[in-house]
């Protein structure tokens, strides 16, 4: 599996990144080299080996389905909006998405 400029552009789109054509060819070269290295994994027999996605015991803790603040300070709309780059009338704003 060799990665091409076209793949890199496609992946950049999925990742919502703008890449200049210079960056695209640099990343293609670098990712090619990294992927060639990780290709080594194909020599490991993993038949019947389950994947590990977490090293803590699988049971996930449950709690009552009640709304509560994570921290006392984390209350209210103002707090949620205070780091937002653009707001209006207590909402986050985004560019128009419907024509």
């Amino acid at each position: 599996m060799s990665i091409t400029d076209k793949d890199v552009k496609h992946v950049a789109g999925l990742a919502r990144l703008n890449l200049s054509s210079e960056d695209t060819s640099l990343y293609t070269t670098q990712l090619k080299k990294i992927l060639a290295h990780v290709e080594k994994l194909s020599e490991v027999n993993t038949e019947g080996v389950p994947p590990t996605t977490s090293t803590v015991p699988e049971a996930r803790p449950m709690r009552e389905d009640e709304a509560k603040p994570l921290r006392e300070s984390l209350v209210g709309q103002e707090c949620a909006l205070e780091n937002a780059p653009a707001t209006k009338d207590g909402y986050f704003t985004v560019p128009k998405v419907i024509e």
């Binding site: 599996m1 994994l41 194909s42 490991v44 993993t46 080996v49 389950p50 994947p51 590990t52 090293t55």
Partner: peptide, 14 residues
């Protein structure tokens, strides 16, 4: 080929 395989080899490392 990549993420899943890596997660399986992770089990072997563990």
């Amino acid at each position: 080929a990549y993420y899943k395989k890596a997660s399986e080899v992770r089990t072997l490392i563990k």
